[in-house]
Design a protein around this nucleic acid. Sequence first.
DNA 1: TATTGTTATACTCTATAACTATA
DNA 2: TATAGTTATAGAGTATAACAATA
Lengths: 163, 163
Amino acid sequence: MAKALKPQQMRTYFALTEAVSLLQYAVQQQLRAEGDLSYVQFEILAILVDAKQPLTMTDLADGVVYSRSGLTHQAGLLERAGLITRRASSVDQRETVVDITPAGAARVATVLPGHIQVVRDLLFDTLSAEDVRSLGDIMSRVRDHMRSLPPRSATPRRRPRPK
Amino acid sequence: MAKALKPQQMRTYFALTEAVSLLQYAVQQQLRAEGDLSYVQFEILAILVDAKQPLTMTDLADGVVYSRSGLTHQAGLLERAGLITRRASSVDQRETVVDITPAGAARVATVLPGHIQVVRDLLFDTLSAEDVRSLGDIMSRVRDHMRSLPPRSATPRRRPRPK
DNA sequence: TATTGTTATACTCTATAACTATA
DNA sequence: TATAGTTATAGAGTATAACAATA
């Protein structure tokens, strides 16, 4: 159980987290400025557009790391803004079926070009095709590894509290 | 001005953002569970430990992407918790000099092993030395590029509003 | 006047727990 | 009993604007 990361690992960890933080910050600014959307709200809309069909709240929660109540809250905001609709499922009355409205799809279409522009300017402008492939390979592997580990809810990291 | 990203770019962008989100989430859980610290609070303490000397609020704000008032708020929390001290600078009375306390250093020491463990388990476990080097090179380049672009505060992304 | 930092305030995000309704 | 989702509530984070003090 080594106590430190190797210098190369430190360098990589810091570069990764700082670069992604800056990217996230820029993307959030753009989404708010051009579409009055938080990133989570954009994600919800984008998932619905991508699915090309209505989804249940549970489906959506799987795509966004989120508590159910948080998702309910965001869905409420989006519904009030006229960007999605919610209705009870006809097959299982417990489920809520969420669909995107034309206004919701239009909102995504409004912000998407700017979103892409930010990602291109900040992330891809300095990367070669080989870099893109390599980065994609590495991060896909990391993502799959992380997904395979804990069921996301349990934080089994037990400890008697430091004091 | 192309309107879409290439499939390879999409794949890379999604893998990058999702993997880092999962990593950030896990790190935040660990810091809260083992040290009752938010990530920003941990960053502030870690910067002070690393600096090995007191820093001004402005110095700290440069290390953390943050509004001054947000930093003041967090510094107030850390001060109340006895993890840092604040006093007026003797050379320039406008400046506030922030120093870490023994308790603050101890708190960092408490959470650091778990932090490192999370990063190792989630990020580095699946990466070869070559992957680490490659990822570090790429993200360092991206980070430097992003830093060189906007002065961080101005969001010069002007537009006549979509509607 | 410009700079450093704080205060007051308000809003958003997020989660926990209790709850309803359906299966 | 278990599952899907909502509601109520509360706490944490963040930012803007006004402010005070110093340079």
